[in-house]
């Protein structure tokens, strides 16, 4: 267990970026991993096909929460189409350590939630209702 490998993950876990909920979000989406209880909610504000602002909240292991935090920094200002093109490996490579395959679900939860949020936004039009049961 090399401490330096965990630097980035632990930094984001202890000081999550863009944490909280977003007033007037265009779309909100949350999903969990039932087997481990990880949960990520994303609130997204869009402008001209780009992500103007994004906030995340949730609970769970350091990998899932830090990965979501890192993702919010990365996607702010990005085109929706560019986000839909993001690959799992893009996220896995951004974490500063080699994630074991048993933890892929945790590491990729944020990206999954973000893509689902954007798909829901496209499907529902401009003013989607927030999903049920948002976490505080």
């Amino acid at each position: 267990m090399e401490a330096e490998h965990y630097e980035l993950i632990l930094d984001h876990f202890k000081n999550p970026r863009n944490y909280g909920t977003l007033e007037g979000a265009d779309v909100s989406y949350e999903e969990g991993v039932p087997s481990c209880g990880d949960l990520v909610r994303l609130d997204v504000k869009l402008e001209d096909g780009k992500i103007a602002a994004v906030k995340f909240s949730g609970k769970g292991c350091a990998i899932s929460q830090a990965s979501a935090s890192i993702l919010t920094e990365r996607v702010t200002g990005m085109d929706v189409s560019g986000i839909m093109d993001l690959k799992d490996s893009d996220v896995l490579e951004s974490l500063g350590l080699t994630v074991s395959p048993t933890r892929f679900k945790c590491a990729l939860l944020g990206l999954k939630v973000l893509k689902k949020a954007l798909v829901q936004n496209t499907r529902d039009g401009a003013a989607p209702a927030p999903p049920d049961g948002p976490s505080e």
Binding site: M1, C36, C61, A62, I63, S100, T102
Partner: peptide
């Protein structure tokens, strides 16, 4: 303050196999 999956994952790096979950 540490999720058991993180605990189990970090022990695994040391060759130590434990279970985590429900």
């Amino acid at each position: 303050g540490v999720h058991p999956h993180d605990v189990a994952g970090m022990l695994d790096e040391e060759g130590i196999a434990i279970r985590s979950g429900h």
